[in-house]
Design a protein around this nucleic acid. Structure first.
Lengths: 205, 205
DNA sequence: ATGAATAGTGTTCATTGAATCACTTTCACC
DNA sequence: GGTGAAAGTGATTCAATGAACACTATTCAT
C-alpha cells in the first residue's frame, strides 16, 4: 500500500491537495491537464489511476471530481473554534475585533457535542498555575451553565479571567488556583462566559 | 449574512455536510434530488441557490459538484496525528498496535511545518507535573534531534517516559520535572523518540 | 532483449450534471 | 385579499467530465 510515488506522481498529488485546500474541491481531469500543460487529458487520467493503484487516493467511478483522500474519510468532523485574546463585556453574539486566531480540531478529540458553542481564550498570567494552566496556553471553553468545581471564564471588572467555580450551600463564588492571588472573589454579579473543556499549549516548552 | 435558514434548507445543508463527511465529496443536484425524493432536479437547484444567497455555501458556476463551505476555505491545512498509549522499542516506522486514537488539528495552531513527523503520546503519571504536564494529557511530539532544555520522549528500560533534555558540557542527561522523582537519570544509551511541541488536555478539569 | 512501469499524444463517445423556462401550491404577513 | 418567499413539478438544453482505445517513447530490472 505504501508504495513510493514517482516524482511526477508526487507533483500531481500535491496539486490535488493544493486544489482541495485552495478551492475546496478536487480538480477535474481537464483542470489537471491545464495545470500541468498536458496536451492530452488522458495523461491526467493515467496519473490518477496510478495514484489510486498505490492507495493514496480513492476514486468513485463515473462521478465528477470524485477523488478522495482516504485520511479525510476516517477523520472525524473538524470544528473551527475562534480564539480571542480577551472577551469584552457584550459577548452576546460575535466579537470579531478581539479575535486573534482560530483552532481547527476534530470534535472527537475534545469530547464535546458538535452543536456546542465553543470558543478559545488565550490565558494571560499565572492565576491558574496550580491547575496547571500556564501563561500563553489556549483554553477551549464551552458556553453552558457552570457546575461545581468547573473552571470558568468569568467577567470581572470588564475583563475576562479564568477561575474555579465553587458552589457552596447554594452560593456560588470564584477561586483562583494560585496561592499568591486573592484567595476568594465573592461573586455578586457573576457573569460566566464559558466552562473550560480543553486546553491547548504550543511552542517551546 | 447570518440569515436564518428554513427547516427544509437546514435539512439540505445537513445532507451536504453529511455527504462531504461520509463520501468525501459534495452531492450533485441529482443526488440531492434522489435523497429527498424530489420529482424534479430543479427543486435541489433552487434550494442550493437559496443557501448560496444566505451565504452558508459558495458555488462555482459551471463546475460539477462545486459546492463549498466558506469555513473550509479559511481553514488551515488539517493534520492527522496518531496517538499512542506508549511507544515500544522499535518505533522505527509505524507501530499500529499501540495506537489509541487520533487527533486532527490545523498545522498553524501547532506551529510546525507540514512535513514534520509528529505523533501524540498519552501521559501517564506525574513525573512532569512541575512542567505543568498532567496525568492524562496528550503531548504532541515531533521527531527530531533534541536541543538543550527540550522536553523529550525517551526510551528507558523499554518504556517511554517524558523528561527534560539537558545538555551540559557536551554531555546530555535527562531530568524529571517533579521533586519526588529520581532527580537525574544519567543518559547512557539515550534514545530520544521525539521532542514535545504541543499539549492537548480534554475532559473535566 | 524483453517485459513492465511510467509518461505521454490524439480522438471519440456516453454520461453526468448545471442551468433555464414555465407553472403550481402553500403559507405567513400587512 | 393581495403579495412575496418558500417549496415544488416537468421538460429541455448543452457544457463539463470521465472513460476508452490506439499508439509512441523512455527507463529499469530481469
Amino acid at each position: 500500500m505504501a508504495e513510493k510515488l514517482t516524482k511526477r506522481q508526487q507533483e500531481l498529488l500535491d496539486f490535488l491537495k493544493y486544489s482541495q485546500n485552495k478551492n475546496g474541491l478536487m480538480p477535474s481531469t481537464r483542470e489537471i491537464q491545464a495545470h500541468f500543460g498536458f496536451a492530452s487529458q488522458t495523461a491526467a487520467m493515467s496519473h490518477l489511476r496510478a495514484l489510486e493503484k498505490k492507495g493514496v487516493i480513492v476514486r468513485l467511478a463515473g462521478k465528477a471530481r470524485a477523488v478522495v483522500f482516504p485520511a479525510d474519510l476516517e477523520r472525524e468532523e473538524v470544528m473551527d473554534i475562534p480564539v480571542y485574546g480577551s472577551i469584552a463585556a457584550g459577548m452576546a453574539e460575535v466579537v470579531d475585533e478581539e479575535k486573534v486566531g482560530c483552532v481547527s480540531i476534530d470534535i472527537a478529540s475534545l469530547g464535546i457535542p458538535r452543536n456546542a458553542r465553543t470558543f478559545g481564550l488565550q490565558v494571560r498570567g499565572e492565576s491558574m498555575i496550580d491547575a496547571h494552566i500556564c501563561d500563553g496556553d489556549t483554553v477551549i471553553m464551552e458556553f453552558r451553565e457552570p457546575r461545581h468545581l468547573d473552571i470558568v471564564a468569568a467577567l470581572i471588572d470588564d475583563e475576562t479571567t479564568l477561575k474555579r467555580f465553587i458552589m457552596e450551600k447554594g452560593r456560588p463564588y470564584l477561586r483562583a488556583e494560585n496561592e499568591n492571588f486573592p484567595d476568594l472573589i465573592p461573586a455578586r454579579e457573576l457573569v460566566v462566559q464559558g466552562v473550560m473543556v480543553g486546553l491547548l499549549r504550543t511552542g517551546r516548552m
